[in-house]
Design a binder for these strands. Structure first.
Lengths: 155, 155
DNA sequence: ACCTTTAAATTGTATATACAACTATTGTCC
DNA sequence: GGACAATAGTTGTATATACAATTTAAAGGT
């Protein structure tokens, strides 16, 4: 009896073999797990670490500044920050513009970040091995292009 | 008045400048948005399309098979499949092993996939432009390595 | 045949993510 | 200076994701 499962069209096969999204997302899931497992003992996720680092480097940062450098949607950041504020790692203060607030890292947040550095190094090393030198270079180039706004976000 | 914002340590700066996770996640967010916006008119997300494609290519697939090729956690897939089953794009049938079930694409799911191909092509082209030829090559290589299990999941 | 161990999937809970709708504030133009 | 447009964040809702705990079923040893 011929099985009734339709074999996929050539075009569907093409998606399976070529789709950039599927590969990129797969790779990111794997790498995210790597970092999250390393950071877990510190009670920190890689997303949260990224936000701490960004806020730390920017100094008093407006939410939109962090959104820009991380290509994060404003509502996503809003909730991430709220969780971290509750943890005591971030604080908000009001700036000149009444619509906005300034985010800064608390001393506790700073200490946490420093403490987590060895775990980060470990994950970073494994991720480097996975991607290889050329992979890291490509990633660097592409992320920089994105931050400069090369991908037109047609509102 | 010297500002009290602590400037980040050299090591924190290093994370900002070198962290693979932050760049990869940033890039993936941007690319995911690209595909999701293109696919939206079809009521489909890129995650769901990936699962449809995988199931389509595998034929009668066990959940664990799909998890393996996509590096997805089993509980994640379980919920994704349930949503798609409700939409009528996937169906489950019981196989020989009573613990497992077989997932297959319904005719409606197949039609949806075919219909969405032009949108996929459009997003794919933009993603290609963003990553460049070398970027795509690296991605291909790394994803293949991952699927072969090169990253030790020290469960 | 029964008990224990192993394996596969589901369910509980939490974070991460985005879009749409809403709120509040600022800026502009007459 | 008041109506209106633009801007910044927050909130409502939904998907995606993972870890831990639970359920169900198969395998293995005696």
């Amino acid at each position: 009896m011929t099985r009734k499962t339709e074999s996929p069209s050539i075009q569907v096969r093409q998606i399976a073999e070529e789709c950039i999204a599927v590969r990129l997302r797969l790779l990111t899931r794997a790498v995210t797990r790597l970092y999250n497992r390393a950071l877990r003992p510190h009670g920190l996720t890689v997303s949260q670490m990224n936000i701490l680092v960004a806020a730390s480097c920017l100094g008093q940062a407006r939410p939109q500044d962090i959104c820009r450098v991380l290509h994060l949607e404003k509502s996503t950041l809003s909730r991430d920050v709220e969780r971290m504020r509750i943890q005591g790692w971030l604080k908000k203060s009001s700036g000149e513009d009444g619509r906005t607030s300034l985010i800064h890292v608390t001393p506790a947040g700073g200490r946490l970040l420093e403490k987590a550095i060895p775990a980060w190094r470990e994950a970073q090393q494994r991720a480097k091995a996975l991607l290889g030198e050329p992979g890291c270079a490509v990633l660097d180039r592409t992320a920089t292009a994105l931050r400069r706004g090369d991908l037109r976000e047609t509102g």
